[in-house]
């Protein structure tokens, strides 16, 4: 994997995680992160991640990769939280 692609995906993962942790429904921490700073920081990381992807991918490909990655990240984060803190019978 190209270094820019790797960096872009990593920054987007960090940004997505920050946004998730600012949600009142997050299950990773006892309390959500402060909403405004975490969301701003998350958005900034997402923007940086997207910018890193544009260094090696064409704009249309960047948008497809970025959105696909965000969908996956936002799908997995709640499940990872639930697996880490099981709270009931399945």
């Amino acid at each position: 994997m190209n270094a820019y692609t790797f960096t872009g995906l990593l920054l987007s993962l960090a940004g997505g995680t920050a946004i998730y942790l600012a949600s009142p429904n997050q299950r990773w921490c006892r309390r959500p992160l402060p909403r405004t700073p975490a969301r701003l920081g998350g958005t900034l990381l997402l923007a940086l991640g997207c910018f890193s992807l544009t260094r090696v991918l064409q704009p249309l490909t960047t948008s497809f990769v970025f959105i696909t990655w965000l969908m996956l990240v936002f799908t997995l984060l709640p499940y990872i939280g639930a697996l880490g803190r099981p709270g009931g019978e399945s």
Binding site: I67, P78, G88
Partner: peptide, 27 residues
């Protein structure tokens, strides 16, 4: 959004588990 509530309310749990995937990966 992002809610995945585990607990004794199994219907709520399966609903959340279903909705998280369905909404986030809707595109």
């Amino acid at each position: 959004f992002f809610a995945l509530r585990l607990g004794r309310n199994l219907k709520r749990m399966w609903l959340d588990a279903h909705n998280v995937v369905g909404i986030v990966s809707l595109p």
